[in-house]
């Protein structure tokens, strides 16, 4: 499927999904936390899309909101898509886990939780992964300060 067909399909399933018009490297789909999991599930299991390989999961802090970015590709169909979930609530960011769809998400979501503080609902083992358990704050956030460890050059 080419990007237009995927776009059409996604919009048919979830008309709320926001798809920026400008052509970037990938087809971007921006969604709210509520429809992330249903959309991901459809993308994963639909025969025509069949996005079975999550090759990157990253968190981004846009100051006004947090974002979790899912880079997906299909191993047999070869098309790629970028799912972005925008989380407006910085204090208590929550989004459904996609561990059940792609197992690799388990570690990557723990990393995003560790560094950005995004809580993934239904995650089997949501703990800090890179930092120690008693670390305070979420270091990759833009408002994170640590005078002892961050040296301004």
């Amino acid at each position: 499927m080419n990007n237009d067909q995927i776009k059409e399909k996604v919009l048919k399933w979830f008309p709320d999904a926001e798809i920026p018009a400008e052509a970037g490297q990938f087809l971007n789909v921006i969604v709210t936390p509520e429809i992330l999991h249903p959309l991901a599930e459809k993308l994963r299991y639909d025969k025509e899309t069949h996005f079975d390989y999550l090759f990157c999961l990253s968190g981004v802090d846009w100051v006004s909101n947090l974002m979790v970015v899912y880079h997906l590709t299909s191993t047999n169909l070869g098309h790629e898509i970028v799912l972005k979930v925008k989380i407006a609530d910085r204090e208590n960011p929550e989004v459904d886990t996609v561990c059940d769809l792609w197992k690799t998400a388990e570690f990557h979501e723990r990393e995003v939780y560790d560094l950005f503080g995004v809580k993934f609902k239904n995650h089997p083992d949501l703990r800090r992964i890179l930092l120690e358990d008693d670390w305070e704050g979420f270091p990759m956030r833009k408002d994170y300060t640590d005078e002892a460890n961050i040296v301004e050059l």
């Binding site: 090759f55 990157c56 990253s58 981004v60 802090d61 970015v69 880079h71 197992k103 690799t104 388990e106 570690f107 990557h108 990393e111």
Partner: peptide
């Protein structure tokens, strides 16, 4: 597979860099 994900805001440093390192995913299996 190493993935380099750079988000730029047109400054001299990137806004966000993510390295999708192969070892991290391999270890999870």
């Amino acid at each position: 597979e190493l993935g380099v994900y750079i988000i730029s805001d047109n400054k001299k440093s990137p806004y966000r860099v993510k390295f999708r390192s192969p070892g991290f995913s391999n270890l999870s299996a």
